[in-house]
Design a protein around this nucleic acid. Structure first.
Lengths: 233, 233
DNA sequence: ACACTATTCCACAGAAGATTGGAGAATGAT
DNA sequence: ATCATTCTCCAATCTTCTGTGGAATAGTGT
């Protein structure tokens, strides 16, 4: 009988998920989608892909059921299929960083010189003590899709203009998408260059959500994390 | 400047891990390695691959640093690089099962009709109450590499012969490699056909290890699971 | 119905990956 | 030394994936 065939078929099914994760561009798309839903056009520009190429990659992800779509007029919004997908993406990054020495180098090359950071716990502690103001330096749409409660939206592009609005007597904690997002690094560098006390959250919104910490949002949830997959503190 | 280039390079690094997971055969190899180290020859036979093909896949896994090797005479033993790799493999399977409807069908086709199962907690409870005897139906080498404390090694191939040795007044709980391993299913079917009270552990050694439950072993640990990645109960 | 926008589908060329057989390297046994 | 064992490396072939334009499709606004 075809026990061997059936086993191969089963593992080939598992591999569909692996194949979906087997491209840097698709991981980049998942990274963006972890922040909230987006149109094909927005994704193609954010990931620096041709429109048709982005569409093809999104189809690949969709065929693996890692993302879902919603139509609104002529636009099609893509979103993650669930928190398990976000957890899987995060674990791929973690394992890559743990196992591949080159990841450290590539991360430094992209993120620039290390900037001072605080953990999620430390951020909560400092905010509670009134010692820190939290700013979300991601684009405004991502802030709208969900942010750390009490954080103020200050997209990196606007940071220089809004400097005067930021409290001068408090430390500023900047955060962005996640552990490998460049925005908070640049925000801290800019703020420090202007003489402000600034640090960044060590990771970002992705990890915040995976830890099932409270999220403030205008509209619906981006994804919920199954309790079994929540980050342990 | 090359911010775009650096970002692409970083995500391509992450994708190295994804690419390693992008083949059913490689996932099958990881599945075997999660039970303990093995030689290339043993792996190629267990996964039904040509020797050179198996070697090539193992090289791919090794270049992604998901596995490590050890030489003993003319033989080369492969093993998982760490518990994080096991956790990643398990999560790929979980997400695949969660997201892809075909996985359920493929699993049933391979495993056969559903057999009654108990959870890890329930197993521990029944053993403590003296109501159940636990048998490990994996090949003897895998038992030697680590097993549930108190379990008896009864490889599936020997089960029919050893039937008389098994307690007739206790329920028998059979377990094997993990959630998609066929051995425990077949053991339960055989035992029931012979009129024994038998159930299987719902998953297996892989998930037992990921939950950081105690493991009894003659030699060294197969892998340790970082506390952040342990299964939540 | 017509123009317009957003996205997918199709066809192609080049790149990358899988499988196989045979040669070659490392080790152990005689 | 020589030979057997075990595995890796190499070359050839075949398949799959990726990126790109251009055509086709679905929906909006006039």
């Amino acid at each position: 009988m075809g026990a061997r065939l059936a086993k191969t078929a089963l593992f080939d099914q598992f591999a569909r998920v692996g194949k979906a994760l087997a491209s840097g561009k698709r991981l980049e798309l998942l990274d963006l989608l972890a922040q909230g839903e987006r149109t094909v056009d927005a994704l193609s520009r954010a990931a620096d892909l041709g429109l048709t190429t982005a569409s093809a990659h999104l189809q690949t992800l969709k065929q693996a059921n890692l993302v879902e779509t919603r139509r609104d007029g002529t636009k099609i919004y893509y979103r993650l299929a669930g928190g398990d997908v976000a957890a899987l993406y995060a674990l791929v990054r973690t394992v890559a960083h743990e196992r591949l020495p080159d990841v450290g180098a590539a991360a430094t090359a992209y993120l620039g010189p290390e900037t001072e950071s605080v953990t999620r716990d430390e951020l909560l502690r400092r905010v509670e003590a009134g010692r820190a103001a939290v700013i979300d330096v991601r684009p405004a749409e991502e802030f709208a899709a969900g942010h750390i409660p009490g954080a103020r939206s200050v997209p990196l592009d606007d940071l220089a203009d809004l400097l005067a609005d930021l409290p001068a007597d408090q430390e500023i904690v900047a955060y962005c998408r996640g552990a490998y997002c460049v925005l908070a690094h640049e925000a801290v560098r800019l703020l420090r260059a202007r003489g402000r006390q600034a640090v960044r959250l060590a990771d970002g919104m992705l990890e915040w959500r995976l830890a099932a910490l409270p999220v403030e949002t205008a509209d619906q949830a981006v994804f919920d994390v199954p309790s079994a997959l929540r980050t342990r503190t």
